[in-house]
Design a protein around this nucleic acid. Structure first.
Lengths: 207, 207
DNA sequence: TCAATTATGTACCGATCGGTACAAAATAAC
DNA sequence: GTTATTTTGTACCGATCGGTACATAATTGA
């Protein structure tokens, strides 16, 4: 065992609470005092455990992506017998559930942070991390469509990276709508519309 | 004429500069000192002219919507001989030009503010104003599609409000992508894809 | 038991936050 | 010119910002 006094709080639980605070109020909108109050710890404990506000935000963002975004994307990319349209529907449904969940802040922390980033209020390294994460997601989606195309499940004329950008724009937009307070049903209807657009003929809900 | 010393700065120019600052750094990320410095005036002048930070933001947001968003939406809604798909393409193209313009902050102030809103960092009245603006836009788009439908240019099975939500989600998402630094060409390609999805058969760029 | 190590609570740091009091300067009506 | 009115610059307000010094408490290895 390590020497010294033991930490009196659960670091993982604290990080989860911090993530939700940033999710709710953003980077600039969340103060260190807000964090220590919500986490139930004092400042020195916070700084000892997480470095500083910027590092804590980076950790919270990574936790968000690892716990929420990545599993859904992984499930989508996993080989599956179901048709692509059905898998994308499930993917979008899961995301809508996430961004309009009643027990979590509305919207998506990544989308919110991406919008906040780029200015002087957000550290440059955070902005770069967000940009990198976006490109990573694009690459995963592009690979997915390329894979489907190589297996003959998509027309040879389809452009995987365009489809990826398109899907991301719809998902990002849905997160913004959710943040604006739109209901789950409306978002799902819009998502269904996007799916039948993305993969015409592969879905039951034509328009 | 009104009595008293004359204002030494152009209020409209000052509001424009304030708008761009909020556009770049957000509500929480923009301090009153940032504003007075950029506007080249002192605090008492700012408070006398615009009330306080919250009111100044409201004014900047209204200016943004009136100068940027509203004209584009008005052009889209105006009776036009061109087919709907072409008008929507022009609309999206204009918006992409706006959100990826090199002389303005990346992205859309409205989308950025909508994401920032809802937490404790943004006044409640601002959040409500943003929500209201979003619903207004939805109504305009819905009316547009209803009008086209009543003139037989859209199938009877089309659902105008769903199409409006879908279009908004794509546009919002494109604004987020632009904020992340994506190039104009990529955004336009994704937009073309969305149009050919929204109005199949009315466009030359099928997929 | 004792020393080394780590976490904790308090109390504080300089800087900045949003906002204002106040007097001097400028303008118009009289 | 005088007076009433408005804007200006300076200087300041209490509160909060992100971050830390320091002494104490707790824990492990020796």
């Amino acid at each position: 065992m390590s020497v010294g006094r033991k930490r009196s709080f659960d670091k993982s639980e604290a990080l989860d609470k911090a993530m939700r605070l940033f999710w709710e109020n953003g980077y600039s909108g969340t103060s260190v005092s807000d964090l220590t109050q919500q986490l139930g710890i004092n400042k020195p404990s916070l700084y000892a455990a997480f470095g500083n506000k910027e590092k804590l935000f980076q950790s919270a963002l990574e936790r968000y992506m690892a716990c929420y975004a990545a599993p859904l994307l992984e499930q989508l990319s996993r080989p599956d017998e179901q048709p692509l349209a059905e898998r994308i529907r499930r993917y979008m449904s899961n995301i809508i559930e996430l961004v309009s969940d009643k027990t979590s802040p509305k919207g998506c922390l990544f989308v919110k942070s991406s919008c906040e980033a780029g200015g002087t209020g957000v550290p440059e390294e955070v902005t770069q991390a967000l940009q990198s994460m976006g490109l990573d997601t694009r690459q995963v989606l592009t690979s997915l469509f390329e894979q489907e195309q190589s297996r003959g499940r998509l027309p040879d004329t389809a452009e995987p990276n365009v489809m990826a950008d398109y899907l991301m724009s719809v998902l990002y937009g849905i997160s913004v709508l959710a943040r604006q307070g739109r209901g789950k049903d409306e978002l799902m209807t819009a998502a269904e519309f996007a799916i039948s657009s993305l993969l015409p003929g592969q879905t039951s809900g034509e328009h």
